[in-house]
């Protein structure tokens, strides 16, 4: 996993609550057995006017000009600003895969669904939680200033506008933060405790042999 240290990136807004993972990446694209290539189908049903299927040439499809990410001013955005309960619904990790493949490195919202939140951290995508009022301020700024960027510093747990007119602190669990800062493979970390797992397992299966 790519480490996440600091990022200064263009911000794009999705101004609706309860954006679900079916919207982020529709089911027909879940048939892939790969982890990559989902970016062109991120928000497929909102982004295109025609119906998308795997294998289509997305370059020839009809773009929905009213969808916010299709506005030229948001091209190259790396920070997605969203509303509450972002990523609700299914556990599909294809959702963060699609967001990351599109180019997003960080998300900012008042809240996320639990499974989606976990999945983001596993893919170098930083889901930042700010208060409703802070998120409101950011929506105001994004709408008012084309080219609005934010600088995100994971070590300092801080989101800042370039002119420092807004500087917000965010929480990050120490373990997740450590893994993301260093791009650590958490399977490798867990396997450092393989003996403890083996001992636990032996005891548990002896006490409850029907689990074997």
């Amino acid at each position: 996993m790519e480490p996440f240290l600091t990022l200064t990136g263009l911000v794009a807004p999705i101004d609706r609550a309860n954006v679900d993972t079916d919207a982020i990446i529709p089911k027909q694209f879940l048939k892939s057995i790969k982890r990559s290539g989902f970016g062109p189908n991120l928000f497929d049903a909102w982004r295109y006017l025609d119906h998308g299927e795997p294998g289509m040439d997305n370059a020839t499809r009809r773009i929905n000009p009213d969808f916010v990410l299709n506005e030229p001013r948001y091209r190259g955005a790396q920070v997605l600003l969203a509303r509450r309960n972002f990523g609700c619904g299914s556990s599909r990790e294809h959702a963060p895969w699609a967001l990351a493949d599109y180019g997003f490195r960080a998300l900012i919202a008042p809240s996320y669904a639990d499974i989606f939140f976990n999945n983001c951290y596993k893919n170098g995508l930083l889901p930042i939680v700010l208060s409703e009022s802070q998120v409101d301020l950011l929506f105001g700024a994004v709408n008012a200033f084309p080219g609005f960027k934010l600088t995100i510093d994971l070590e300092r747990q801080q989101v800042a506008a370039p002119d420092e007119s807004m500087v917000f602190h965010f929480d990050a669990e120490p373990f997740r933060k450590h893994c993301l800062l260093h791009g650590l493979d958490d399977i490798g970390l867990t396997l450092q405790h393989a003996d403890a797992v083996r001992a636990f397992e032996a005891r548990r299966l002896a006490e409850q042999p029907w689990l074997i």
Partner: peptide, 18 residues
């Protein structure tokens, strides 16, 4: 509870979740 694919791999490899 439901998990993502990275966690599926984690459980396959370690029988545990973080």
């Amino acid at each position: 509870f439901g998990i993502g694919t990275s966690e599926v791999e984690h459980v396959l490899a370690t029988q545990c979740l973080l």
